[in-house]
Design a protein around this nucleic acid. Structure first.
Lengths: 221, 221
DNA sequence: TAGATTGTTAATCGATTAACAATC
DNA sequence: TAGATTGTTAATCGATTAACAATC
C-alpha cells in the first residue's frame, strides 16, 4: 500500500539505460556488470544499482545483469509493452515531422490522426493519414481509443485546446507549445520546450566564454 | 577567481523565468514580488529569490523586482543579447521544421546553412536557404562564423559528424540524434532526445494506471 | 517611521556515492 | 570453496525550503 514513490530523477534516467541495453543486446552482449555499464555510460556503478533496485532485483550476485532480461524489464517499467494511440494537433512543420518519424511506432506509439485549424491543410495526406479539421477531434478520440495527444500548435491556442482534449477523455499530452498547460490531476503532461533547450545551450556557450576571458585576464595580472 | 559554479538545476529554470517575465512585461506589469511570481509559476518564493541571487541582487527590499529590468538581466545571463549563427545538418522533416521555425531568430539564433547527405535534397530552398552537400560544411563554417550546429541526422552517422564539426571549429551542438556524442571539453552539447521524452510520458501513464488498479483492489479487500 | 520584501543564513530534505554484508 | 558482484545500509553531498535580519 505505502508504495515508495520513484523519484523523477530515476525515471529520467531509465530511457538512457534502455537505449544502452538495446545496443548491447544488438551487439550480442549477454551479461554486464554495473561496473562495466558505469564505464560505458559514464555514471557511477552505485547509481546504476540503486536505480535498478527501485524496481526489484534484476541482477545476480557474482554474475551481474542479463542484458536481454534487463532490457525487457526496463521496457515494461516504461510501459513499452503496451500500445498507445496518438493524435497530433497541429499539422505544421513540426507536427508533420513527428508524423513522418517512423521510430515511435516501433515502440508502440501509433499515430492515428492529424488535426489542424488551417483549412488549406485539410485533406493533405501524411503517411496515409488525412489532416482533419479541429471539430473532428472529439468524435475521433472517442471512436479510436486515443490516449495521447501531441500538441504542436502555437502557444496562443494551446491552453484552450489542452482543456478540450481533457474533456474528450485524453489521458496524456506531449506538449511542444511554449506554454505551461493547466490540467487536472491524473492527466500526464510531458513538455518539450525547444526554445528552453536552446537557451540552456546559449547560456553554456556564454558562460564558457566569460570563464575563459576571466582566466586569461588573471594570467596577465 | 573562485567563482561559485551555478548548478544546472538553476540554469534549467532560467528559461522558464524568462518566459513568464516576458509575458508579464507584455501585459504591462511593472513590478512583481517573489511571492506573486511564486503563485504564478507554482514554485516557492524562496527558490525564486535563491535562484536570482546566484547572479547578484536584482530586487529591492520592500518593492520586489522590476519586471522589465529582471527580464533584460536574465536575457543577458542566458546570452540572448548575443547573436549566434547556426547550421542545420540533416534536412529531413525535423531539420526542415526547425529551419522554418521563425521564433529562434527573434532570440538571436540565425540559421545560415542547411546540409544533407541526400543529393536529391541538394538545391532545395527552405526559407531562402539552399540545402548543400555535406562536403561544403567545412568551408561554410569557417567563412560564415558559425558557432552552433543543429544535428538532425540519424544516430548512425551522428557521432562521426559531430567529431568533424568539432574539428571545423564549431562551438556547440544542439543534438537531436538519439545517441550520446563524445566531444572534447569546452564544446557545449545540448541533447533533445524526443524518444526519451515520450518514454517518460509512457512511464507516467503506466504508473498512474497501476496505482489506480492498486487503489481499487485495496477498496475491494 | 512603519510596512513590505529582499538577500542571506540556517535547517531540512532528497539524491548520490561509498561501503560492505549477503549470496550467487 | 573462493571470487565476483549484487542488494542495501550508511555517509556524504547538494538542492530546496524556512526563517529572519537588513534595508528600501
Amino acid at each position: 500500500m505505502d508504495e515508495k514513490e520513484i523519484s523523477q530523477a530515476v525515471i529520467s534516467r531509465l530511457p538512457r539505460y534502455y537505449r544502452y541495453l538495446g545496443e548491447l543486446k544488438f551487439e550480442g552482449v549477454e551479461r554486464i556488470s554495473s561496473q562495466e555499464l558505469s564505464e560505458l555510460m559514464k555514471v557511477t556503478a552505485s547509481q546504476i544499482r540503486q536505480d535498478f533496485n527501485n524496481f526489484g532485483g534484476f541482477g545476480q550476485q557474482g554474475y551481474g545483469y542479463n542484458v536481454e532480461y534487463l532490457y525487457q524489464e526496463i521496457g515494461k517499467i516504461l510501459g513499452l509493452d503496451k500500445k498507445h494511440n496518438l493524435i497530433i494537433i497541429g499539422a505544421g512543420n513540426l507536427g508533420q515531422a513527428l508524423a513522418n518519424y517512423m521510430n515511435f511506432e516501433r515502440r508502440g506509439f501509433i499515430i492515428r490522426g492529424l488535426f489542424d485549424c488551417n483549412s488549406r491543410l485539410h485533406g493533405t495526406i501524411i503517411r496515409d493519414i488525412e489532416v482533419q479539421p479541429m471539430e473532428k477531434i472529439k468524435d475521433f478520440v472517442k471512436e479510436n481509443d486515443i490516449d495521447i495527444a501531441v500538441l504542436t500548435i502555437p502557444k496562443a491556442s494551446a491552453v484552450d485546446v489542452a482543456e478540450q482534449l481533457v474533456q474528450y477523455g485524453i489521458r496524456a499530452i506531449w506538449n511542444f507549445a511554449h506554454v505551461d498547460l493547466n490540467v487536472p490531476e491524473g492527466i500526464q503532461v510531458e513538455n518539450v520546450h525547444l526554445s528552453d533547450s536552446l537557451m540552456r545551450l546559449s547560456y553554456n556557450i556564454n558562460r564558457y566564454d566569460s570563464e575563459l576571458a576571466k582566466k586569461n585576464s588573471a594570467e596577465n595580472a
